[in-house]
Design a protein around this nucleic acid. Structure first.
Lengths: 189, 189, 189, 189
DNA sequence: CATGAATGAGTATTCATTCAT
DNA sequence: TATGAATGAATACTCATTCAT
């Protein structure tokens, strides 16, 4: 008896997700060139061939991983946060809280790491910083944020987030900075 | 004949240095796995075979590069700075001045990037932070440095240096932070 | 129950025949190495696994296909024709008529193509030409067939049949030669 | 001391030609799918990697082989022959002479086989038959060529050439037809 | 029986390394 | 020494075959 159409679809979805989920970390840690399909498949716990059922090539899988990192990085929560009727200082504290907490999730950290990596290589667009810049400008008007070019401050802030994302990918017991340390990059004392 | 002997030695030295100098950047940008000897040799402007006259293997060359990055990172100037009879605040400002200035040199940036990368991967020892920690502790006694675990602060400070080292490897026109921005990570306002 | 037993057997037979019928053409067109089970099964309209219920392996299926092509090529009608009390000229015309007509059937064409292919590769025995040679020799005695080595003429004749078998496998609208054209290879004008 | 520019060029040319020359036969005999790069390289007498220095992929090499087969098939000698002020009957005899003689050269045979194969698959254009058709029409006017559609006759004639090209690829001791046998396809007795 | 997702041996392709010139 | 063509081990990718459903 043939498997039901839906069950098949389900299995496919599951396997595809499994591959993506497990690959994010692997690629984030080892990079594209440093990732062997043989090792990756072992790490995922499937046969090499299975990867090629779901992805045309190693590059294709990598691209998919990147698309995911986009979603992780350009998080909705942050965009919504910017729109709330709050003083910038509080927005920054909330954002920092959220980010420091999220970095404990390896997939979030990997997403941030991959996305920033791509940003550095000039392959992702920088509109990503827009939300943060808006908050910074608001804060500068309100007097709670240090003076300086908002793009530069934004890059600095997210650079530090990236830094700790990368750190947490390599070491399980990172001495993580606190939400306050992170906020302090932007906030006037 | 002795003259030509020397000249030969000189040429050897020159080529060897050329390879090392050009490789630092290439490895820093692309990583070990991402660097192909064929590309690297093209980038240096020599034949593939020539690299193997001076280095036993790709790994051998990489190790050499790392030794260089060690020297760059554990700079004598900084150790000396720590010993000077100055208030910690000034030491930090001088160190930041020096680092921000040095980052303009691509080889310095590459050295910092490679060294930190290795640190992250747990392959370089962390004694490197010692000097900075000393200054931080001094500053905390003097009241000029923010409170907090000195290792954590030190890692944060160097993390940001790493961040801008990496940025400058990828983009020629980085919006670099100022020496003051960097110092502010450690200094009480 | 016995009824359903038979019905089962019947279904089995049907599926098995379907696979064979559809495979002949596929193999004839693409060759053994050029035929992927995944493509073939799609072409047949069944799942890949189903093929392995009826055939132990790809080679096994190919062998079966060959057995069929044997039967097609060493057709009984032709052997009987040779035995009839007719002048060779008429036998050749009848044979040509039959062959040209049969080539319109794709399975016949595929059978001829596969069989001759195997003959070329030295994997089928050449006794196959025997019947035709006999007729040729008879015709040469009777003066209706051109002079020359009977094996050579026979190979020529069947070569042309093969040629048009192959042509009809690739193009649906072959400019087919007539039965007379074919006969003329052997017949004195 | 570096190898001289010209010598390098020469070596490259030689190796490239070696690969092409040896591949023609291999592909003609085994087809694209039936040819393994590992076997082919062994047959050529070089390392697998060497093939990829000269050709981007197996397909690329195959395409090159096909380009060569084009040149072999659309031979200049035949076009010139058509233009000569000779009766068609003589042209056909000369053409047949030339073809039967040339088929003894394995590369010529392979070229014809590959080209015709591509023609069958509809991937080569049929302008190729033009020259022969012209001669046929001339001959029909002159009364030396059998009546019938010139394209059909042309295809028949070249089909037989293909047939013996293929035969000679598989067997070293083919019972080859004579130039007269070949001509007789077109010539009135 | 039939299905098609999963497997892994087999094949294509890349790339660090060697070596004749 | 320096070169770059050649090598073959390592890696990416395919496809005949299996097996849980």
């Amino acid at each position: 008896m043939p498997k039901s159409q839906e069950r098949c679809q389900e299995i496919r979805e599951e396997t595809r997700n499994l591959i993506i989920r497990k690959s994010i970390l692997y690629f984030a840690r080892n990079g594209f060139a440093g990732t062997k399909i043989s090792d990756l498949s072992k790490h995922i716990g499937i046969a090499q061939g299975t990867i090629y059922i779901y992805f045309k090539s190693k590059e294709d899988l990598y691209a998919e991983i990147f698309a995911i990192s986009d979603k992780i990085a350009s998080n909705d929560k942050l965009s919504m946060l910017a729109e709330l009727p709050l003083p910038a200082g509080q927005k920054i504290k909330k954002m920092s809280d959220y980010l420091i907490k999220s970095l404990k999730d390896e997939n979030f950290a990997a997403g941030i790491a991959l996305y920033t990596q791509r940003l550095l290589e000039g392959e992702a667009d920088q509109s990503f910083y827009g939300t943060t810049e808006k908050i910074i400008k608001q804060g500068q008007k309100e007097g709670s944020v240090v003076s300086g070019n908002s793009r530069k401050l934004s890059e600095f802030y997210w650079g530090v987030v990236y830094l700790y994302a990368v750190k947490s990918l390599y070491t399980s017991d990172v001495v993580m900075i606190t939400s306050d340390d992170l906020s302090r990059i932007l906030l006037e004392d």
